[in-house]
Write a protein that binds this DNA or RNA. Sequence first.
RNA 1: GCGCGCGUAGCUCAGUUGGUUAGAGCGCUACCCUGAUAAGGUAGAGGUCCCAAGUUCGAAUCUUGGCGCGCGCACCA
Length: 1136
Amino acid sequence: MFDPVRGQPDFPALEASIAAWWRDHGTYDKSLTRRRGAPRFVFFEGPPTANGMPHPGHCLTRTIKDLYPRYRTMRGQFCERKAGWDTHGLPVEVEVCKELGIHSKAEIEAYGVEPFIHKCQESVWRYMKEWETLTERIGFWIDLSKAYVTYHQSFVESVWWALAELFDKGLLYQGHKIVWWWAQGGTALSSGEVGQGYQEVADPSVYVAFPLLDDTGAPTSRSLVAWTTTPWTLPSNQFAAVKADLDYVVLRDAGGADAAEYIVAEPLAAGLGEKLKKEFEVVDRMPGAALVGRCYQPPFDTFRQPGSPATAPLAAGGHEAIAWRVVAADFVTTDSGTGIVHIAPAFGEVDYTVLVAEQARFAPGSGPSLINAVAPDGTFTDAFGMGSGRFVKDCDRDITRDLRSRGLLVHQEQYVHDYPFCWRADNDPLIQYPRQSWFIRTSQFREQMLANNAAIEWLPEHIKDGRFGNFLATNVDWALSRERYWGTPLPIWVCDATGKAEAIRSYADLLAKPGVLGADVFAKAKAANPDLSDDLKVHKPYIDAITYDSPFAAGGRMRRVTEVIDCWFDSGAMPFAQWGWPHQGHAEFESQFPADFISEAIDQTRGWFYSQLAISTLLFGPSEVSSPDVRAWPHPFKTCIVLGHMLGEDGQKMSKSKRNYREPSEIFDRYGADALRWFFLAGQAPWTSIRYSERAIKESIPEFLLRLWNVYSFFVIYARIDGFDPGSALAAPGMLDHADLATASGWRPVAERGELDRWMLSELNATAAEMTSRMDAYDHFGAAQRLSALVDAVSNWFVRRSRDRFWAPGRADGGPDANVEKTDAYWTLYETLLTISKLAAPFVPFTTEAIWKNLAGVAFSGRAPESVHLTDYPAGDAALVDHDLVRRMAVVRDIASLGRAARAGEKLKVRQPLQKVEVILADARADDAAWLEAHADLVCDELNVKQFEVCGEPDRYITRSVLPDLKKLGPKLGKDLPKARDALVKGDAAALLAALAAHGRAEVPLAGGGVAVIEPGDVLVRTTAKPGWAAAESPRAVVVIAKDLTPELIAEGLVREVVHAIQTERKQLDLDFTDRIDLVFATESEALRAAIEHHRDYVASETLAASLHFGTPPAGAEPHDIDGHPLAIAVAKASS
RNA sequence: GCGCGCGUAGCUCAGUUGGUUAGAGCGCUACCCUGAUAAGGUAGAGGUCCCAAGUUCGAAUCUUGGCGCGCGCACCA
């Protein structure tokens, strides 16, 4: 027998007990054990960083990540879920720096790299407890005990292997990169960090004259005019760029005595005139191409020798000036400035590409080299004496003053724009700065990455060719190295004699090198501090201590480069590194690559989605470089659900300082995890940005969880009363699916049960089939909506329509007093609840488990599966779906709804019985009419009428009209459609329908000549109620009610009102529903008195009245108004 | 600046290849039920489907151009 159920469930408490029960019973492990050997469903966990607090967005990802593995496991697949943690990177270092109260690299070095790294390793787990709590609390089943950790030695060695592969294939190289540089902190910042630090500032905006040189190298009075907002880059000027096909003009001040001539792009000439408030005349014009190759005098002689421009031999022959020369560049625009761009290759990425292109034109070794007057600490070097030792931005004013004094400053103004500052030292502006960096040649694999991407199933689909595809198409080489401390060390050792390098694949390989030294550094540290994690031996500074004999030069030593790598490479390597592959874990890797399914939020397109795809494509894609391990596209993941970002209550980004969202823990404590999960899964498509609203989460409870719980509670209450006990009726419960239940005593085949039961099981099985196909297509939103509709059908139709059976006399225990129809109702509802528990289990794992534990666990004392998550997902049995019945029942529900609408229109409340209701079906298909008439009782009961029929002479109540079926006739008639539509609407519908019925076709004359040939199916029939009837209509039916009331009907209506009044009294007196009462009435209305007398048996039985009489009611009897008739009622509990 | 997404009822959101009267939940109003009851049901009101042009017999849906919001990228020489 079932345990009693609380009507008011405390979901948070319930969930806590379920979570504890899962833990104690190892339910997750059991769910895996069941499926061992079954086809795999491979899931990759994108590693979160435990260095930050989990927030509501993580609740969403963890819910989605839990849903599909649970579902697939129930569907019969084997899905191991290995957790993982992302542990490296600047955020960890920043946390530690904050703790230590330091900022710059110099301060870290002063503190000591070794203790700093120890701090980092400890800091990684700062919020571990919160993460583990969240994971368990939200019901995310994943194996935390076997989590991969990116700083572990085995993980690092896998990454080393990958990097060594790339290095050996020539895909890992060292080059320059212009980075956003935090000069005070001595480090480059990632684009994400830069993006966080933009501030609106006003910078000087200067227009500077670059005088062109004549053949002797002397400046002329004709100058290029360049524009810049960073005067401090002018001392490092190297070129001036123009657009070749753009027209340039030479301007002279019309009113000035001055002979100065300015060259600017023609479209910008007028603007310059306005700024200078001068009337310029155009004295010459030329295309940009004509300027290319001309030399000019740079604004400062920082790097220039006096005299003629230095030249060098070109690769193609001839000589050209090395620098301070006009070049052509496509990126030059006329949006702002002058159309002439000052190029300082050290301080801009596009500027740098100009230098690289120029270098390529010259004979090897003789081209321009990078010139740079700025030191890494952001101060000018001695090369620019005027600013030597001062921070560059502080020199802007002196630089412009100097230019003005030399007559080179054409114009100066303020320019307001966004400029990046350091995100954690917001007084420090960032500068663009060239650094040596290690790159992965990903751009060479652009086409392969696109091909790999093309095979991935992205949800939503537009990610593939949209955001992600675009990103791949504009791919640039991956800047891999970081000049930091806490990260995977770049495994490249360089010969100190020759500069030649080689990559190391594992720690063991390193120790096996000839003449290896320095391994003892870690050993000593470990001896001094036995708690030191062994994993740190592959980290700085210990790894840097290891050197070995150079294979390239006798006497040379191999020393590691100083850099660590971008931590995105770590996470992107997890498909193999999580197993330590290829050094170990072969079986695991082979059986779990690629992933069937991953999911993260959209911010991972350039993060984890990209790093995984890039690494996998380079390592496992076809390659001209020998590649032993080629895999078919797609890899390393086949399907990816890209989640939208979560917004706060106000629709803005969630922000701790704005307090515009509730902490997940608060949500769990108030409403429970299932409420949150259901809100995520059933509230909206997962890729829309979700507004995280407490109100919406709260409302997701009554709409689904509570409704399901109410049905369950109803069932248990009455099953206990009626002795419905499957545990004793069923010897071998199996998995409690349909076939298992069929072996129970007292169970009747569905075909023998009543219509309502057959309908319920039809809906159940149809829903299961549809949910399965939707879930297989990763459409949990559609599946959840279908499930919600099913629960509504159970609650608001099956249970409501079955109440009489549940309350009928007789038991449901299969004994001699058993009531067969009642027992059928129990078996139907029992099966429905069990199946819904299974269907909903991946969505709301706690609530369904609680229901299952009682309906199956308690009922069978352990003979049935102990957890709903250890059952098979119901796929729906088509043989149990009666489509006609489903359709007809929908018509009945429609009729009931229309009948109430018709009543409402006439202000005839449902308590007032009516004589008759008639229905006219729009689509008199099959035998629906006969079926409906056979179910007149049902309709009469729902609508409180005496008689129901399908109308035999519909023309009395309705008019029929025909409308074109646009979908069918549209393609057929094209432009004639409006005419045909007119003809159909205005024509004789009855005649047309008759013709169609008789001949299978009809011709409709069109206005202006011609005819349209109409066939059955080309038109739709619409029925409309004629005026004057109490009717309501829908596309399916018209319902007409008889609104005339006879005295008998009025009397019945009065009596129903009286009963209602008494029931309300009973409730107010807090009587038990089995208590009997004595009733005394007093009324001056003879009509009311007569009505009650006439129906006194009905009144007595409805209200459980032991006695009923008219008289003088005791004082305090409640006065009532019964449709205008006064009535005093005294209700007293009967003595017996 | 470029790219991606979004814009539908007071609020939160659905809307399947273009098709007839654009839906749901919440909220609101009225009513009903009262043996699941701090629940439940029915009905109603509420819409310029952001704007404009175009394609089409027909556009919430397709195209183009705006406007607004979000995100990403780049740039700010």
